[in-house]
Design a protein around this nucleic acid. Structure first.
Lengths: 196, 196, 196, 196
DNA sequence: GATGAATGAGTCTTCATTCAT
DNA sequence: CATGAATGAAGACTCATTCAT
């Protein structure tokens, strides 16, 4: 008799939106943005194709939403180390954080790398990701500088390259057999002189 | 008009095939496999669309042919250092070779990384590329072992990660502004104790 | 909260229905029947999409309701001259009435001509409009006959054609720059021998 | 063995293009531009949907092609009376030409009027048609001026309105029952003082 | 060997309509 | 009476592939 309350609608919306995003993340990370059709996302999410457009005005908007999610996730991670003043500790935390992301946000991370690598993706979407990476390297550089490292820029790029290289190898080349834990400890040791 | 000799036919075939491959390489590295249509390849190659199917039975077969080309290119590179017995020198040469490839075969390399990243590409094509990478790491591992490094597997993976990370940063993130030369010298110094 | 009296319900119903019709008229005349979506009508009317189906069982039914409205409007106009016995005066009044409609009901008139022109619109809707036009011509014919004009049918069709032609030029071709007033006086003079 | 000659290809292309245009003209004039889908055009033309895009880069381009055809047809008609110096004769010829077009190019003319009337059609397409109509009226005005008519502008608009009104009544309201011949003779008599 | 017209499945997107609350 | 989430058919358009010549 009475219409659904706004609260009910919000809850329903949130749930459907989440279903769609979840399906999209999985499919994009497994098959790549261009290879996945809107129909397939809808099917996997268990909703009608049309419903997707109730929440995202285009396929690209779905990708954008995923990227935004990932970005704020990463931002949170970044901020969690931002307060750290001791350079060595900060480096260690950044390394450990990166590995945690590789492990816990594998699907997201795969998407990110795949998006950056795919030419079909509009640069409107790529730009913020590239910017984020560049910023992360800048942060590393600053930390190395504080630590008194001789060539902080090069050193930051090197660590950045290792981390992204590890991610790439883990996510796209070697898969589960990759010795993620060993690499993590090795890098921490190498950059801080200690092992946990 | 006049009947052509078998040799002439072969020459013609080879020329058309090469034209098509060249066009495909350029387009794939610039726009990505999925974004490039067969028509566009044919157009760029200056042949009729139908002719392409005379040489390759599908669009995917064109990609396969390109990957094969790249693989043998890399194989040649690899073999050029295979004979080197002195571990330190071998490591240096492998590093320098990699950077030469990043620089001189940027388009190829971009394609490779992009292909590996796109799970849409059938594993028939991706497998050999992955294998090649694994093999290269194995080669590094063996060399580090000879050198007497403590944990050659980890060390090889680390250098592999750096190299691929550098490639990724250079090709997809930072572009021409990336200090490729500095990184090269830095790595050589780090791994051999010398600079050129 | 409190139970509403039947009168209240009727009032509410009437108000919502009117809001929807108003919105539809405006949108249809501005963008055309096919170009306007039900969502847009509901949005402009400030009601939920579903409510529209509470009052009209389809989008087409909304159009039908609008056409009916227009028809009764025109009927009223027609009846206002029906009593006139003097042929010359009647002709003049019909001409002047037509121009008043072009001016004051431009949106309605645009809709009508547009509907008649779009064969996509089901004839259930077009029929009454066509009938109305035919009737108007018949009325003119009768009046010309009374006046003793030689070929009243042809004369009626000719005046009808001029009036619709003027409407068409004014509404779709020349727009505001069309000399509606001049044409009106010219026609009155031509058909009655007088100017106001 | 040998490829088709360019001449053969041109012939084939011309034939297919014509088939598609013919189907489109018929469907557009019967159901209106917006109501007709590309699939339906292709089906009626007896070709695959995709082929249409081999000849026209969009549905709108098909419409544009039709409009262009119509425009040049009308241009030819216009030019055929352009040389006529005697005003009375010129007016008669213009009237008779118009009626010939209504009769012989009914489908085209229906399209034109329907296009001008439909809001969904981009003004890029409408503009030239409107311009053409305006030009035709200007031509009439000039002729009336030469004839020494008192108010040539109004007179030209009036004749223009009659002609378009007749077309509208014939094509959209009364259909085959409309006394086209009578109207034609009546108008000629009215504007030249003679009947054929 | 070479041409490009032709096919049709598949892409993203829109929208009238239904329905649980 | 009122809401808006959900559906699915249909629309315009793309493109790998085939084939007659």
């Amino acid at each position: 008799m009475s219409p659904k309350s706004p609260t009910q609608f919000t809850a329903i919306r949130e749930k459907s939106r989440a279903k769609i995003l979840k399906a999209a993340v999985e499919l994009f990370s497994k098959y790549g943005y261009l290879e996945v059709s809107v129909s397939r996302i809808a099917e996997k999410a268990g909703v009608a194709k049309g419903l997707l457009y109730n929440y995202f005005h285009s396929k690209e908007a779905v990708l954008k939403a995923i990227v935004d999610l990932m970005m704020s996730d990463m931002q949170v991670f970044m901020e969690s180390v931002a307060g750290e003043e001791r350079p060595k500790v900060k480096i260690e935390r950044m390394i450990r954080l990166s590995f945690r992301m590789f492990r816990e946000k594998a699907a997201f991370y795969k998407n990110i790398m795949s998006i950056i690598t795919q030419s079909g993706v509009p640069s409107k979407i790529k730009k913020p990701l590239n910017d984020f990476l560049a910023e992360a390297v800048a942060e590393l550089e600053e930390t190395f500088r504080l630590e008194g490292v001789e060539n902080p820029r090069i050193e930051a790029l090197k660590l950045g390259a290792i981390l992204d290289g590890v991610a790439w190898h883990y996510l796209f080349v070697f898969g589960e057999s990759y010795p993620l834990d060993n690499m993590e400890n090795e890098l921490v040791k190498r950059y801080t002189g200690t092992v946990k």
